[in-house]
Nucleic acid binder design. Structure first.
Length: 423
RNA sequence: GGAGAGAUGGCCGAGUGGUCGAAGGCGCUCCCCUGCUAAGGGAGUAUGCGGGCUUAAACCUGCAUCGAGGGUUCGAAUCCCUCUCUCUCCGCCA
């Protein structure tokens, strides 16, 4: 949510910056609505002030035993107009709210202009894609070849976009999550948190999934709860409606959770394999920081995610998302893309964003500033990493000619020191 | 699932229809006092939104907010209804 004050005081500039990221804000209708709000609010408050004042007089007069019928008649005449004014104000404010809740965040000045993925700017490449002297298989063929990955059974149990992993592959999946958690807690100073996977609508609103992306979420109707699409939702909402002490900033959480996404509107996209699933695991980093520190925090958080890929010795690149390709709530986003030899391309494995105060304003997440006044925090998060896609990258990059897969050195302690997955 | 009790500021806690945004305490800030420390005295200290105001701060002023939403009333923290959550007891359960 953007600051209403900013929209009032600097609308033209806001409209321009939103247009740059592909969002058309109807300036005239906003102004009209805002003007009406102002007039109705002033009138409503006048009437309320009058009613309050008169009612107070009644109390005073009664306590002195005076006759109050004249004053009561006076205040009674306010009733209808006041009620109408209050209703109209509530209606207008709801409309303004609806507009406000569907406006995306303003991009930071360091975000490149552009409309699509093609306009994203590569920041760096790390590692060199391995040369294969045999025909590379994709992760589906590698996994199924080892009889450790089974999509047919997943279809029987649940349907498309689910997977079943077995044996050493299931263990490797678990090992990856453990390795990521250990790295972030032991080397990067994050506190591990275990959180609910079902959340209420307020939490979804807080991080920006609602109201705009309601259709993308799994909804448990009987209890009116939603399956989390990312740990970002429960973890960031830890500070919803809270005032964090200045000395407790930055707050750094890491959490390993499953993520559930309906993937509405992606029919036909990435239908093969584990790239795009309704359910996948992710290790998520979340930081709650002082506003002056958020851009520095974004760089270090990105570095923390990169560390995992470096330790796994997987080639990757970092891209700075252009305005048109950024998510709804983000002010700036870096994606990390891992090399997938079978696709002969880099594919997203992490997304690290600074939301500035956009989520904090929706959540009323604040800290006490140097003057002891509550002020909105800045929030950030990043995947570090998406576990399923990391597994895909290992299967493809570490595959051998005989169909086996070498286990990256850092994972072997988690795998009973095994060196390979083999049939 | 059944029965009961409760939800008030940063925290604790009083308040059952009228000058209550809310006693008192704790905490915090400032000032005074005291060689230091400890103790003491005084003042201040909720949030959101609007208006004054064309930028920011400060200030003045209005409205709203006592778990949430409705209702009764000239007037609601207080009375009524619905919901949410917490606690206690019973039942069930990994």
């Amino acid at each position: 949510m953007l600051d209403l004050q900013l929209l009032r005081n600097d609308l033209e500039n806001v409209v321009q910056r939103l247009a740059a990221r592909g969002f058309a804000l109807d300036m005239r209708s906003f102004q009209e609505l805002e003007q009406e709000r102002k007039a109705v609010q002033i009138r409503t408050q006048e009437l309320q002030a009058k009613r309050n004042q008169t009612s107070k007089q009644i109390g005073v007069a009664k306590s002195k035993g005076e006759d109050v019928s004249a004053i009561m008649a006076e205040v009674a005449s306010l009733g209808d107009e006041l009620k109408a004014a209050e209703e109209k104000l509530a209606y207008i404010q709801n409309q303004l709210d609806d507009v406000l809740m569907t406006i995306p965040n303003l991009p930071h000045e360091s975000v490149p202009a552009g409309k699509t993925e093609a306009d994203n700017v590569e920041v760096r490449r790390v590692g060199t894609p391995r040369h294969f002297d045999f025909a590379v298989k994709d992760h589906v063929d590698v996994g199924e070849g080892l009889k450790l990955l089974d999509f047919e059974t997943a279809v029987k149990i649940s349907g498309a976009r689910f997977s079943v992993m077995k044996g050493a592959l299931a263990r490797l999946h678990r090992a990856l999550a453990q390795f990521m958690l250990d790295t972030h807690t032991q080397e990067h100073g994050y506190t591990e948190v275990y959180v609910p996977y079902l959340v209420n609508a307020d939490s979804m609103r807080g991080t920006g999934q609602f109201p705009k992306f309601q259709d993308d979420q799994f909804h448990v109707c009987a209890d009116n709860l939603y399956l989390i699409p990312t740990a970002e939702v429960p973890v960031t909402n830890i500070v919803r409606d809270e005032i964090v002490a200045l000395e407790d900033l930055p707050v750094k959480f890491v959490s390993h959770t499953p993520c559930f996404r309906r993937e509405a509107g992606t029919y036909g996209k990435d239908t093969r394999g584990m790239i795009r699933q309704h359910q996948f695991d992710k290790v998520e980093l979340v930081q709650i920081v002082h506003p002056s520190a958020s851009y520095a925090a974004l760089e270090t958080l990105l570095g923390h995610a990169e560390t995992i890929l470096k330790k796994l010795e997987l080639p990757y690149r970092v891209v700075n998302l252009c305005m048109g390709d950024m998510g709804f709530s983000a002010a700036k986003t870096y994606d990390i893309e891992v090399w997938l030899p079978a696709q002969n391309t880099y594919r997203e494995i992490s997304s690290c964003s600074n939301f500035e105060a956009f989520q904090a304003r929706r959540m009323q997440a604040r800290y006490r500033n140097e003057k002891n006044k509550p002020e909105l925090v800045h929030t950030l998060n990043g995947s570090a990493l998406a576990v399923g896609r990391t597994l895909v990258a290992i299967l493809e990059n570490y595959q051998n000619a005989d169909g086996s897969v070498t286990i990256p050195a850092v994972l072997r302690p988690y795998m009973g020191n095994a060196e390979k997955l083999s049939a």
